[in-house]
Amino acid sequence: MLVGPTVSVVIPVRDDAEHLRRCLDALTAQTRRADEIVVVDNGSRDGSADVARAAGARVVPCAEPGIPAAAATGYDAARSDLILRLDADSIPEPTWIASTVTAFGEEDVDAVTAGAVFHDGPAWGRVLLAVAFLTVYTAFAAPALGHAPLWGSNLAFRRSAWLAVRDQVHRDPELHDDLDLAYHLGERHRIRVGSSRLMRVSWRTVRPGRFAKSFSRGMGTVFAHWPEDIPPARWARLARARLTRTDRPVPHAAIRGSR
């Protein structure tokens, strides 16, 4: 019998059956198995849902287009203490779930995120390009947030933390769901950065056309939180909160009223 928090793994998918099959195979090989795997079918026209069911996953449909809506639907459907999120093209190492659960051993840790290396693409760039991509992402996102960003391909958080912010997150398909979630979780929840060596993802993220689209959505996500979260205002708010409460920042509502 498993001891410790229960674990739900959430995977949004749309028309990505072959990648999903490899991801689910890797989850089956975990040293600490998930209590449930929730695959959110975001209108797939291929066999993604069938692949998920064949692997024993619970398939939850989401008719609203886009990763933000699909991811949120999966988080709402998750039943466990911890929600672990990856993408259909992610391949976790066998100790990914066990290591992630261990990272929540500290009571004040509410979210854990980490990077990855690529499992496909040119062999010479599988580590180099992944490091470069994540360095650029962090350099862009961290100053805007005032703390570490989240990355949806390797992400976990307490279900209680999700319930605290679920009504604030955006579900716009043109925004980045993980960056948006970081804005809201970062207000009053502690984020911890883990090891990148436990996850591999597809290099399609950094292909020129897709990277440009990703960057555009990143900028859109930042602007969606202005003017309340213009960096100097957000930094000052978080700094004041840390001075008044040593554990974690107070929420927006306690400082300037609800949104």
Rank of each mutant, 00 (worst) to 15 (best):
D229I: 04
A103D: 02
D87Q: 10
M219Q: 13
D50V: 13
L155I: 09
A130I: 08
V165K: 03
V222S: 08
D89T: 11
H19S: 13
A130F: 03
R53M: 00
S48E: 02
A116H: 06
T100M: 03
K213M: 13
L163E: 15
G146I: 00
P251K: 08
V38T: 06
R21A: 14
V165S: 11
D167K: 11
V222D: 00
L134N: 02
H119A: 05
P232F: 02
V38W: 06
D41R: 12
V101P: 07
W124Q: 11
L86R: 08
V131S: 13
T138V: 08
G186K: 08
A111H: 05
A71G: 10
S99Y: 12
V101Y: 01
A69S: 00
A254K: 06
K213E: 15
I255D: 13
M1E: 14
A55R: 02
D46Q: 11
D178W: 05
E106A: 10
T6L: 13
D35S: 11
H147E: 07
R79C: 03
R192P: 07
A224N: 03
P249E: 10
W151V: 07
N154W: 11
A72V: 00
D180I: 05
W124S: 10
L86G: 04
I67W: 15
W96G: 07
S8P: 01
P94E: 06
G105W: 09
A17R: 14
A233W: 11
D178N: 03
D15V: 07
R256N: 01
R188S: 15
R188C: 12
L181Q: 03
G56A: 00
C23S: 11
H119F: 07
W96H: 12
D178V: 05
P149F: 12
D87C: 06
P149Q: 06
R237G: 06
V250M: 15
T100I: 01
L145S: 03
T100G: 01
A236T: 10
V10F: 06
R171L: 12
S160W: 07
